[in-house]
């Protein structure tokens, strides 16, 4: 039985940067190879990924709708798993093609339609990835008062100074 399916593909930005139309036909060809009738396919968005996938921090999403017999999906899954240019895919059955989808897809076919070039991968240092903006802050000497007293000749003197400071603060209050 023929069903309508919605499929979202996450494509490697390197392929998209080379040529968007080629990247699109790469997916639609694989769909057609498995007997699907592609209704429409369009660029959904280019965005930063929530987590790194195969070393990529950004990726381009392709949204496609197609009609195919259910059992053919197994062959498609195998093809997409094997293709390294497709980072992730998600295929869902839908009742019908959503309204306005054909028009959005047709916009890409118009002469002069330019696909924005994906930005280059951000090289994020480990410190920035873990600590964010905190990584830029200068490292401050930890205050002695919050730590255990340091062993040494000066330790007593400093300890006394800290105590007198505390006493002064207490008097002010």
């Amino acid at each position: 039985m023929t069903n309508t399916y919605e499929a979202m593909f996450l494509l490697d930005n390197q392929v998209v940067r080379a040529d968007w139309r080629q990247a699109k036909t790469l997916v639609t060809d694989l769909l057609a190879k498995n007997g699907a009738k592609v209704l429409c396919a369009r660029r959904w968005d280019e965005r930063k990924l929530a987590y790194t996938i195969r070393g990529r921090t950004r990726g381009t999403y392709l949204l496609a709708y197609f009609e195919v017999d259910g059992p053919a999906l197994n062959g498609m899954r195998r093809d997409f798993e094997l293709d390294e240019r497709v980072l992730r895919y998600l295929m869902l059955r839908v009742d019908a093609l959503p309204a306005g989808e054909l028009e959005k897809a047709a916009e890409e076919g118009v002469e002069g339609y330019v696909v924005p070039t994906p930005p280059t991968e951000e090289s994020v240092s480990y410190e920035r990835a873990v600590f964010g903006d905190l990584a830029d802050r200068p490292i401050q000497e930890p205050s002695r008062r919050n730590h255990a007293p340091v062993e040494g000749p000066d330790a007593d003197g400093e300890g006394d100074a800290a105590e007198t400071n505390e006493a002064a603060v207490a008097e002010e209050i």
Binding site: R47, L49, A50, G59, Y61, L87, R88, L90
Partner: peptide, 11 residues
């Protein structure tokens, strides 16, 4: 969970 799989949302 679908959005997470596609890298749209964090785990």
């Amino acid at each position: 969970k679908r959005a997470r799989h596609l890298g749209l949302m964090p785990f």
